[in-house]
């Protein structure tokens, strides 16, 4: 059951990215270009997603296990540190440079877009660079704190 649900959630998320046009870099850049002809569409994407997400996470926070009985893997880190801010600033620079973030990059690649494939390969390379640097910087620290 878990595997089926994970697969369907991935499918649904991909459809959401396609329908909202997050997979179209010119649309993303139109939103990020405040000084040009600004396209506010992506604010509606975020708004719609967070509105529904708020309901889901409000319920999720009160639960000790998922509907299928697995543990709730909610992030526990509360530190706002240099790592979080510098990492996010770096990500934003890459996002503004090409108009792709991770999910839309993967979906556009799967739609057969060669430049999206190039983006995903470079993104995985960037993630591997992180693994190497991180292991070299602090070999024994706990390293599984997502979001």
């Amino acid at each position: 059951m878990n595997r089926i649900s994970e697969f369907l959630v991935g499918l649904l998320f991909g459809w959401g990215l396609l329908i909202s046009a997050m997979t179209d870099p010119s649309k993303v850049l139109g939103f990020l270009d405040l000084a040009g002809a600004w396209d506010p569409s992506l604010a509606f994407v975020m708004g719609g997603a967070v509105l529904v997400g708020l309901v889901g996470f409000t319920v999720a926070k009160k639960r000790t296990s998922s509907f299928l009985g697995s543990a709730m893997h909610l992030p526990t880190s509360r530190h706002i540190d240099r790592r979080l801010v510098l990492g996010s600033l770096t990500f934003g620079a890459g996002w503004g440079l090409a108009g792709f973030c991770p999910g839309p990059g993967i979906v556009a690649m799967s739609a057969g877009e060669p430049k999206a494939a190039l983006f995903v390969v470079a993104m995985i390379a960037g993630m591997l660079v992180f693994e190497v640097l991180d292991r070299w910087a602090k070999p024994s620290a706990a390293r599984d704190s997502r979001a």
Partner: peptide, 22 residues
């Protein structure tokens, strides 16, 4: 944009509620 966003929200909500994953 709103329709796609709502789908993203549903997927995220289902993932945490059903699978316990962010």
């Amino acid at each position: 944009a709103l329709a796609g966003g709502i789908l993203l929200g549903i997927a995220s909500a289902v993932f945490i509620l059903v699978n316990g994953r962010v």
